[in-house]
Design a binder for these strands. Structure first.
Length: 176
DNA sequence: GAATAGATCCGC
DNA sequence: CGGATCTATTCA
């Protein structure tokens, strides 16, 4: 991929939509985090208080309050005491939802980061990167890129409830 | 206060 | 398949 293929930064409106749609359309977009650029190749949708797998399923808490805010903000949390997971908040204010970024293909060295914990470990994402505005942050953003692809839907990984939803999206192949 | 489950990863 | 490792949330 050429750097010239990275063009428009995704705006607030992109994320202020159905989480399942945003999760699918994020595939093939480019995540920028400081000096890292990675093509998003795997995502999952976590959708509102009626989704038992969503952290906000039991209502608003200190941790989940970010998901009730404006779309386009980061939601980073510690999982299993060891790994961080990066999400991007979606949908309207007061509708708690987010897209989990599960897979990245780094653009410079083609390194494959398959798994949310691996992404945050490699890029150095931690709790200090929670609740940042990806629409305005100078070093944290998502860009459009001229990448076409096909993807499939599967059940989400690692959850105990909500397994029947096919809300995990994975790129099958990519070509220019 | 104490108990417990958890959107993971790695090594055996 | 279990261990690492810890915190947010729930329950008493």
């Amino acid at each position: 991929m050429l750097s010239s293929d990275i063009n428009q930064r995704l705006d607030r409106e992109f994320f202020t939509r159905s989480t399942v749609v945003v999760a699918q359309e994020l595939l093939g977009k480019v995540l920028k985090f400081y000096n890292y650029y990675g093509i998003i190749i795997e995502t999952e949708a976590y959708v509102g208080q009626d989704d038992p797998a969503c952290h906000a399923a039991r209502g608003k808490t200190k941790r989940t309050s970010i998901m009730y805010g404006e779309a386009g903000y980061s939601y980073v949390y510690l999982i299993y005491g060891i790994y961080y997971c990066l999400n991007i908040v979606t949908e309207n204010v007061n509708f708690p939802a987010a897209v989990l970024i599960r897979g990245l293909q780094l653009t410079d060295n083609k390194q494959l980061l398959n798994g949310p914990g691996k992404i945050c470990r490699e890029l150095g994402i931690n709790k200090t990167h929670n609740s940042l505005d990806l629409i305005n942050h100078p070093n944290f953003a998502v860009f459009n890129a001229n990448i076409s692809f096909e993807h499939m839907s599967t059940p989400r990984i690692g959850i105990s409830k909500g397994k029947e939803k096919l809300w995990r999206f994975v790129v099958l192949n990519q070509h220019n």
